[in-house]
Design a protein around this nucleic acid. Structure first.
Lengths: 235, 235
DNA sequence: CCGACGTTTCGCCCGTCGTCGAAGGGTCCT
DNA sequence: AGGACCCTTCGACGACGGGCGAAACGTCGG
């Protein structure tokens, strides 16, 4: 009918989202983290076989990407457009998501800096990893010698993190940023130190964290004068 | 899991869109005009019975509204959120909508000013109706006395429009603007005059119209000096 | 009041798709 | 090399849902 917005077959894509199990998988993936097939099966409450079949279809429909890693296969949403579809669908679904001004302000704070389980995420987390990598403190999923010195000097228990059964310094994909931040044992140890030093403190909103004045000064000093560009708080 | 973007049941809504017939109906309704059940059945290529069943489900799912009018029942999308879902779905569906630079430029031109059947739509159409209403020329789906004088003076065949079998001055919902513009016999008569005076001329792209220099001056004079804020052409 | 028309409801058929257990292919750890 | 673990493929079962024709309901026009 229209020469633009020409009828695209939206039914097949909608059908992929229409199944409750697949919807649960996609919603779980909306958090931004890549999740293993087994985790997704557990979250969706189906057998591994069923989840696998669904993931194959989602993959075929280009709604998710897969990153094989050892014997795990980590799935994540294929792009921000997919996330937008899911979010717009949530808008007209039974339980409405973010609505009030207060809530959207809170959402902005979470974009800025938040915890992802026990480590730093959001723009702050992404910025920190960028900076570590840029300065040659981090490479190939491990700290370099200089990085080890830097963080140990700050009081981070690097040795303890290495001894932990958790993966040492994996990258954790951040959905709102579409970039990685530092997770695993090292990410947790760093976050612990930052909270102990009160460079960050927990916000009123669950999972939100805010950079303190002390933290701003501390980080600037740590990274030889240049401030972390992304570590400014929401105004 | 998250305190915001809390899991809303997106699957039922997606299921409503997932059926090809319902998707065709919804896509047809994306134009913004309300369509009768029979027309929708024809467009979707199914029997009246089938279309009726689908429309009942869409109604139940609050994706469409219905306006009974005599023995017809006119259906339209239930709100802009629904349109946004459909448009975002189209984004990740097989035949991508607007993509090339040229096409997106053309889409912008259509947002600005276009025809809707035989009357003016887009920002230009919405702006015109706003202005008429603001200046007391239009109220309660009819021209006021001053409006009648204004348009007759411009050369619009108001009397002829009143004598037409079409509705005189209905408001036509503009989807991209989410606001109304003037349709019906009067809307058509106005558009005809504007084209005759060459205040607007048809663009290279189907349905697109552009404001001429003469039109800009004319409209400014018509509305006592103040230019129609929305009637500036795409740069 | 009656016939024409638009729309909905009813009953039935049949294809599609989600589900699981079991088996097979890979990868990691010891 | 062996075993544990993660994931996928295979085969079979069961249910949900879309399709249509016929009939009922309501409205319009003479």
């Amino acid at each position: 009918m229209e020469f633009f917005a020409r009828d695209a077959d939206i039914a097949p894509v909608a059908a992929l989202i229409a199944d409750p199990t697949r919807a649960a998988i996609l919603t779980a993936l909306l958090g931004g983290r890549a999740l293993a097939a087994g985790e997704l099966a557990r979250i969706a409450g189906v057998s591994a076989a069923t989840a696998s079949a669904h993931l194959a279809r989602l993959l075929d429909g280009r709604l998710v990407d897969v990153v094989p890693q050892g014997r795990h296969r980590y799935y994540r949403l294929a792009g921000h457009e997919v996330a937008e579809v899911l979010e717009s669908l949530a808008t007209i679904s039974s339980r409405p998501p973010v609505r009030s001004l207060r809530q959207s302000r809170q959402a902005r704070m979470l974009e800025e800096a938040r915890t992802c389980y026990d480590h730093l995420a959001g723009r702050a987390g992404v910025g920190l990893l960028d900076r570590l990598r840029e300065d040659g403190h981090y490479a190939a999923h491990d700290l370099t010698e200089s990085g080890e010195r830097l963080l140990s000097g700050l009081g981070v228990d690097v040795a303890g993190a290495r001894g932990s059964r958790r993966r040492f310094a994996p990258e954790c994909l951040d959905w709102t940023e579409r970039r990685s931040h530092l997770g695993g044992a090292l990410g947790a140890a760093i976050a612990r130190t930052l909270f102990e030093r009160e460079w960050y403190r927990r916000g009123a909103v669950p999972r939100a964290v805010v950079l303190t004045d002390e933290g701003r000064r501390g980080l600037a000093t740590l990274f030889s004068g240049k401030e972390l560009t992304s570590a400014t708080p929401v105004t």
